[in-house]
Design a protein around this nucleic acid. Structure first.
Lengths: 227, 227
DNA sequence: TATCTGTCGATACACTGTATCACCGCTGAA
DNA sequence: TTCAGCGGTGATACAGTGTATCGACAGATA
């Protein structure tokens, strides 16, 4: 084909300037809006007017992007307070709140080693505020609170999603699972469970989270004051 | 093409008899061997000499298969003991052991509502053994233990994987992350973290898990004996 | 001005979950 | 006995995934 007929190459748009930060924020926007499974390298790249392969200059793998997202959220977590107990409580509460703002965090918490600067800074803030508590206690105490928060947040977000998926309300949720549970209880094999569901307290998510956290902190406190 | 030339349809092999149980066990075998990401409907089906679409007679979606897997593992979890404390402890320990046998469980724990028969039976066993403890305590206590176990197991398995990925030994792990941590600590911004890593106790996974669990149970015990 | 270099994105690959649908053997009815 | 219908099965297809490869271009260097 002669030059005269051949079209010129398309004006290639000046490539949008990219940075890890922009990439991560785009990914977080997507995840906030449509959940973690909406985060694909193609969509993130498209959000930034770039080709998918361009991202590989900034990250080596999708997992790394997820790591960066988790670390970015940790920048929002600022445990504060006076005394070790307030600080651990604050760590738990603020982490939980972050998960409310970014539900996908629940899918990622505890799933990968976290060594990013913001995550380390959060740990640092907590540890620095633990005062002169014995390191032999600090270590497992902080680990336990982190484990508890991970699990509690996961369950809470999972429940929230189940409710939402079954039609936006607690009533709807009961309508979905109620009959199944009725039939299951009717077998008589789950007596204790049945009385718990029927006669047990109906705690909301806040109360449940705080109650568990208090058990844990009470236990830590007993150990600390025992020495 | 004339009939004479046209080949007969291949002897279709008598389709292997299928069942939800066989499917779930095949999936678990795959996951045990190569991790959860090795579980694809195609591979599971191949394992059973079936086409992928055949599975959809037994499950509606891959997520349902994962739910079934989790429930199947709960059949291995038999919390036992006398008194609420022993039972909760046993719940935690046996769940953890199950996760050691099936590491992929860590990826799924807390990630979906669990209402399968085996899961319910586990809860039932726990609740039945809680004796006459006040329901207002039982509810959050069991929830807290479950949350703790979820988080602790996740972290433990995550660490185990990181070690394995970096070359099969704790020494290798240190060789991989050590230098990075050194450089990071060198900034001086993580003083407390640094002293913890340098001077803190080096607890193994068992100890960490049990220590956290004990904090939690001590807290529950304080509440129970306070009334 | 010519060459080198590093970056970008088009293309490709292997794979995913699942929708669709033609076909086949079976069952029940005429 | 024949035939219609039906349900289960798997081939095919589709849209999407993460990522390897590699040609081509822009800018830097000589």
């Amino acid at each position: 084909m002669l030059v005269w007929e051949r079209p010129e190459p398309p004006d290639r748009p000046t490539p949008a300037p990219l940075s890890r930060e922009r990439i991560v924020h785009a990914a977080i926007r997507l995840a906030d809006a449509d959940g973690l499974e909406a985060v694909s390298l193609r969509k993130v790249a498209a959000e930034l007017d770039a080709g998918p392969m361009r991202l590989y200059g900034y990250i080596a793998t999708k997992e790394e992007l997820l790591d960066l997202m988790v670390d970015a959220v940790h920048a929002e977590i600022h445990p504060a307070g006076t005394g070790w107990r307030e600080v651990l409580q604050s760590l738990a509460e603020t982490t939980r709140q972050a998960a409310h703002r970014h539900e996908w965090l629940a899918d990622l918490l505890g799933g990968r080693p976290q060594l990013g600067p913001n995550t380390l800074a959060t740990s640092e803030a907590v540890l620095a505020a633990m005062g002169d508590v014995d390191l032999n206690t600090v270590m497992p105490a902080v680990a336990a609170v982190n484990a508890y928060v991970t699990g509690a947040v996961r369950r809470e977000i999972t429940e929230r999603r189940a409710e939402r998926a079954s039609g936006m309300s607690k009533r709807q949720w009961q309508a979905t699972y109620g009959p199944y549970l009725e039939r299951t209880f009717a077998t008589g094999r789950f007596a204790a469970l049945e009385t718990l569901v029927r006669d047990g307290p109906h705690l909301d998510a806040d109360q449940t989270f705080r109650a568990g956290l208090e058990f844990l902190l009470d236990g830590v406190e007993a150990r600390i004051s025992a020495r």
